[in-house]
């Protein structure tokens, strides 16, 4: 059994991490940061280190990043309200669209060559990444989006007021191709299973469902299938909590669950919380498989490599209620965990 190893990336971003994404093939990953840069790292196989290949400076803090069709193409979004295409070879940045408020997330669907951006101006922009000369379509949302995730055929948008919209990606593709004036309607509209603000969304690799997490130390797992039978399967559970010392009145300290990521092969998923821990869950068996050693700060972002071999973990101080000021400077770190062969393999439903 290959031993699991974990190492820290030598040149981490200078400030808080907003997103991590792995390249489609190579063991490369991008990290977007509040320090206005997007960092490209490559994991040297067998040497237990990841080297910084390049850093791409933006005008404003970068809130999201994702790879495009190949390992040389990426999309970014940030505080400057722009959605950009980033050529990782030349460093060339192309503005694709402009929102009226900062752009929180970008997601690329390789199956449909679609790029979707979600902004605090309560809209989605959908671009045809295969033909970027084609104008994007704008989909109005009923609330500010906070998290976005795509599976093979679905797009899940989690918004304020516990709103969750699920869009059908083929529908979006045809809409953007035909450049329709009437924005496509969501395939499903749901209310979040969680009572508190949604923090992260991740879709199952088998396109069957998704997981959401909230600021209140909880994760929900549910299925796309609208049948009563499938809906009855959904569940939520508490996690990323700590017992407060008795001296402080006991009870639990509840951390936000900032990041979720499904393992692309086994369909298990990882959650990262404000308590600085990463846990690995078996969604089918409803069991926690692993909880890794506590990181020095809040876990801000998680990403599995596409082959499921690596887990990249972005660690920086978490923004907490009552903070007047915030800085991730000097405390931002990126860890890479090389998983053992069966480390993320679930045991299946019991």
């Amino acid at each position: 059994m290959a031993p699991a190893t974990q190492f820290e990336v030598a040149q981490p971003p200078n400030d808080a991490i907003s997103a991590i994404d792995f390249a489609p093939e190579a063991p490369r990953f991008l990290v977007s940061s509040w320090d206005k840069n997007v960092y490209l790292y490559e994991i040297a196989s067998g040497s237990e280190q990841a080297t910084l290949i390049n850093a791409f400076e933006h005008r404003a803090p970068v809130l999201s990043v994702c790879f495009g069709a190949n390992q040389d193409e990426a999309f970014t979004a940030g505080m400057d309200r722009q959605v950009k295409k980033l050529n990782l070879v030349t460093g060339e940045q192309t503005v694709l669209s402009k929102h009226s408020e900062p752009v929180r997330c970008v997601v690329y669907s390789s199956e449909h060559s679609l790029l979707i951006s979600a902004s605090w101006d309560s809209t989605l922009h959908v671009h045809n990444a295969a033909n970027l000369s084609q104008p994007h379509i704008t989909i109005p949302l009923p609330g500010k989006p906070h998290a976005l995730a795509a599976s093979r055929t679905k797009l899940v948008v989690a918004m304020t007021a516990r709103l969750v919209h699920i869009y059908d990606l083929p529908t979006l593709l045809s809409a953007v191709r035909s450049n329709t004036q009437t924005p496509p309607q969501p395939w499903q509209q749901r209310e979040s299973s969680l009572k508190f603000l949604t923090r992260a969304v991740a879709c199952m690799p088998n396109d069957a469902g998704y997981a959401t997490s909230s600021i209140e130390g909880r994760v929900a797992v549910e299925w796309f299938d609208d049948s009563a039978e499938s809906q009855a399967r959904k569940y939520a559970f508490k996690c990323h909590r700590q017992a407060a010392p008795e001296a402080e009145g006991g009870g639990d300290i509840v951390y936000p669950v900032n990041a979720l990521a499904f393992h692309p092969i086994y369909g298990t998923f990882a959650s990262g919380g404000g308590d600085g821990t990463v846990a690995l869950w078996d969604a089918e068996a409803k069991r926690r498989m692993r909880q890794y050693q506590r990181f020095p700060d809040s876990v801000a972002a998680l990403a599995f490599s596409r082959d499921g071999r690596y887990l990249a973990i972005g660690v920086c101080p978490g923004f907490e209620t009552g903070m007047e000021d915030y800085s991730g400077e000097g405390r931002t770190k990126v860890f890479v965990r090389e998983l053992g062969e069966t480390e993320a393999k679930g045991k299946g439903a019991k």
Partner: peptide, 13 residues
């Protein structure tokens, strides 16, 4: 419970 982040409308970001 004590929530480390408790705003139910506005995200930390």
């Amino acid at each position: 419970v004590r929530m480390v982040y408790a705003d139910t409308e506005v995200s930390p970001e």
